[in-house]
Design a protein around this nucleic acid. Structure first.
Lengths: 327, 327
DNA sequence: CCTGTTTGCGAAAACGTTTCCGCAAAAAAG
DNA sequence: CTTTTTTGCGGAAACGTTTTCGCAAACAGG
């Protein structure tokens, strides 16, 4: 079907070695021959097989990014921006980016990831935290000697990761609420974001009402959680959400309940996805700079790769409270 | 560094052939030996190299999806949902999904795509329309005999594609506006969506004001386009956007200009991304069912692949006008 | 007990590259 | 005009699998 290098070479009256040299940038070959080969290749329909090339040592390298995909119908906006950031950083670096989402909780899928990770297809990987599988994959990679960096906290050690300062971000949000005279705070979050809750809590002395979005983090979950909260504590006048999509639901819930934003209820989201600034009302949010995070992750990974696998200290990306129209 | 099959086999006192059989599902091997090999593999740290496996004919197959990535900072929500749909359909099918975004207008990147497409790494591809590069890649794949289906219209022929009925969708939106008593329509769109404009236009007899989002389709572009439109024709009372993100900008612009939605200005978006229903006000939109589109695309691709390359008629996914709070 | 069939495994030939090594021919140096 | 260096190319050995083929041993049927 597809011609291989031997057939193409003998068609040209040359040896496979010469043909190979024409495509790679390092062998010794005359300009005339190279040009002829390149021209004829298009006509003849020859193209090097990537698997054979990689096996022999010449193929293009790739890095993989593994991340939990919680919903099969709603995209993860935060993750999308991280991926964009990684792509930006990788562009021009002669490295392919392979993105490998996995649904948390599926043994089969984790097995597939395992395979991808260990099969030698990847010369490095970034793994984003957020599920038990992340931990597992991270350990696996480390053990197999594959350069890997995590996004978010995966293990206790402060290495090979780009980390967020969730605690501080939530603290800033809480402080802002307090400084602007809000009295009755609430927090809506996923189950995993303990640090955000703690940071927010730390502003007030006592316990504050908290609602968890169970089983996901869509806007609908935000609506339900806020409904519940408002029913139990109608006096609530400000709320921090663990991500912007939950905040979307909270805004919507407030609207349905007839509370004006930000007068009756102030809302701050988390992540600051690109969307936040385009909403009406524009969403205030603790920016985690997702694009930068992705870029930083590949930067660190590249560093580890060229120092082949050497451990590097974690980097923390700063968070920033962005005030818009919901506060 | 990493042990290969020969080393692992001789460590076990077996032949490479037997080890290979232990992992593949078809060779003849005793249960006892297989179990032993599988157990020891973990301990020894052996894992088959995927390139060698694929070269020899045993590797896992993959399909690729090529799509234009217009922005390096804002994710494409519509595209994200299509990808999700493809993933859903592929799950359990023993096929990997490789997503390959490319920035339109870059020769280098197109060259990279070309390589991916022809290098034998993919046993099929879906290519989403929307840039000249899409056309080029589609032709390339077809010529190389790689099973390929497009999402959206790439060539004139009505084959190997899943298509949208943009004309009808826009027509429905226009008709709804007219039926609900709107008098002064406007259209905001990208340069490429000719059919949408025509469909919308067809409702009214004469020319209507049109603004194009040049150089992108972010919410900001929507704001600018709408600003311009409103300045020229303050009487406008309804507007169709070529996608939901532009619509977001339009809603925002109306808000800044002090026009109430939907009373003073009705807005309908296009695509119906998951987000639309969570917004406040919830966005009316012409649903293109992005998830279904992605699913349908891989369905068609799989069909072409098993009939090795046979042409199949295009399928059109129905569009649907979803009315929410902006109308 | 002998013949025919299954079963489990090893030897070796692919799969399609890249790259080292060697060898002529051409070019440069003397 | 000889000697050294450079240049362009072919031969062949990797790279790490899968799979066909063959061969014993174990098993079944009579």
């Amino acid at each position: 079907m597809k011609p291989n290098i031997k057939q193409f070479a003998s068609y040209l009256g040359l040896s496979p070695a010469t043909v190979s040299r024409a495509f790679s940038r390092n062998g010794r070959i005359s300009d005339a021959t190279r040009r002829r080969i390149l021209d004829e290749a298009d006509r003849f329909g020859y193209h090097a097989n990537i698997h054979a090339a990689t096996l022999a040592g010449g193929g293009r390298q790739a890095v993989g990014v593994f991340f939990p995909q919680w919903s099969a119908t709603e995209p993860d906006y935060f993750m999308s921006e991280i991926l964009l950031g990684m792509g930006r950083e990788l562009r021009g670096r002669h490295l392919a980016l392979e993105s490998i989402p996995f649904p948390p909780g599926s043994r089969d899928e984790v097995e597939l990831c395992r395979e991808q990770l260990l099969s030698g297809a990847l010369s490095g990987a970034v793994i984003v935290a957020g599920s038990v599988e992340s931990k597992e994959l991270f350990a696996l990679a480390a053990q197999a000697g594959i350069p890997v960096v995590s996004i978010g906290r995966i293990d206790a050690e402060n290495r090979n990761a780009v980390r967020f300062d969730n605690y501080r971000g939530a603290f800033l949000a809480g402080k802002y609420f307090r400084d602007t005279g809000r009295k009755f705070p609430a927090y809506v979050g996923g189950v995993l974001d303990r640090r955000k809750r703690e940071g927010f809590q730390s502003v007030w002395g006592e316990e504050i009402p908290v609602a968890f979005a169970v089983g996901g983090a869509s806007a609908d979950h935000g609506i339900r959680a806020m409904d519940e909260l408002l029913a139990a504590r109608p006096e609530i006048d400000c709320v921090l959400a663990a991500n912007d999509i939950l905040a979307l639901g909270i805004v919507r819930c407030a609207h349905l309940a007839g509370r004006a934003i930000p007068r009756d209820l102030a809302v701050i989201g988390f992540d600051d996805v690109a969307l936040a600034r385009s909403l009406t009302p524009a969403l205030s949010s603790v920016s985690l700079h997702p694009g930068r995070v992705g870029g930083k992750a590949v930067e660190l990974l590249l560093l580890r790769m060229e120092r082949d696998g050497m451990e590097i200290p974690a980097e923390q990306v700063g968070c920033e409270l962005i005030l818009r129209e919901t506060t």
